[in-house]
Write a protein that binds this DNA or RNA. Structure first.
Lengths: 148, 148
DNA sequence: GGTTTATTATTGATACGGCAACTATTGCTA
DNA sequence: TAGCAATAGTTGCCGTATCAATAATAAACC
């Protein structure tokens, strides 16, 4: 009765997203953007392709998010020195600030999210989530001709 | 370094979604639709409001998904006898079949997803996911004036 | 009974995300 | 070096999701 892991994951993720939604508007970010500026804040400047690969989203999606972030003054996008077809994406001061604000929200989220977990439980749960991701990710390479 | 639970959940969920994507087209469903027909298959006919509440999505979204599912011949939508403003949503034969196909895909997904988990580990992981959902869900009621 | 309030669903505006097609640049090879 | 393949990014089109406003019906209240 709707106890599939697919559904459990969906519900957990969806609750999280709904929970964070108000913070988005508060900071002035769109739905998919926080992960980009978080990545930039932690890994430094990079190209759009790197973002698309890392988050496994379409390059077109990255392109539009970059557009929007640029309009909002969170990032800069300049042609790379080494290759004119590449764009170097970097945070502005405002972007750095937004990333830090977002990080704070995520920490607050986590406090609520993990109520009732002891330290060991958190560790284990994190490991489980990583394993699930890796199981699917590794399979992906193996699966020729699309899926099953 | 990007080890936040928010990100872990995102990655797991996103990998799952990418994994299932090819099955969607195969069955002829849109991205948000499987959960609706799964619900209908397991709980029987219902009103749109019930779906919106259960999945915590906007009634407008349900309205449009219903539209699309109806066009695809997966469901029927008739005015309820007891109240003319309510619609009674029910599966067609084709819808039942699609729900069953989707369920099979989800089982296959689970086999891959849970590689390396023993029976106890699965149980525990499922419990963790449920707890996370409930933690967020229960908070929601408490939080007046939108979040933080 | 007639006015107000709440419920249920739809529509319009806007934004996100994927796929496919396209442009521009770079790298490779003959 | 000319021509072809690969890479990086953008744009068009479509489906999905939210919020706000609206329409239609039902329930509550005086």
């Amino acid at each position: 009765m709707e106890e599939s892991f697919h559904m459990l994951l969906y519900r957990a993720f969806h609750a999280q997203r709904n929970f964070l939604r108000p913070s988005l508007e508060e900071i002035g970010l769109g739905a998919g953007q926080p992960k980009l500026i978080t990545y930039l804040a932690e890994h430094g400047p990079c190209h759009q392709q790197e973002l698309a690969n890392y988050f496994e989203v379409d390059p077109a999606t990255v392109s539009r998010m970059i557009d929007s972030l640029k309009k909002g003054g969170f990032i800069t996008q300049v042609a790379d020195e080494s290759s004119r077809r590449r764009n170097r994406i970097d945070l502005t001061e405002r972007g750095r600030e937004a990333a830090s604000q977002w990080k704070a929200r995520c920490r607050q989220l986590e406090e609520i999210l993990l109520q009732g977990f002891d330290a060991e439980g958190r560790q284990r749960f994190a490991g489980d989530l990583r394993r699930v991701y890796e199981n699917l990710h590794n399979w992906k390479g193996r699966a020729e001709h699309g899926g099953f």
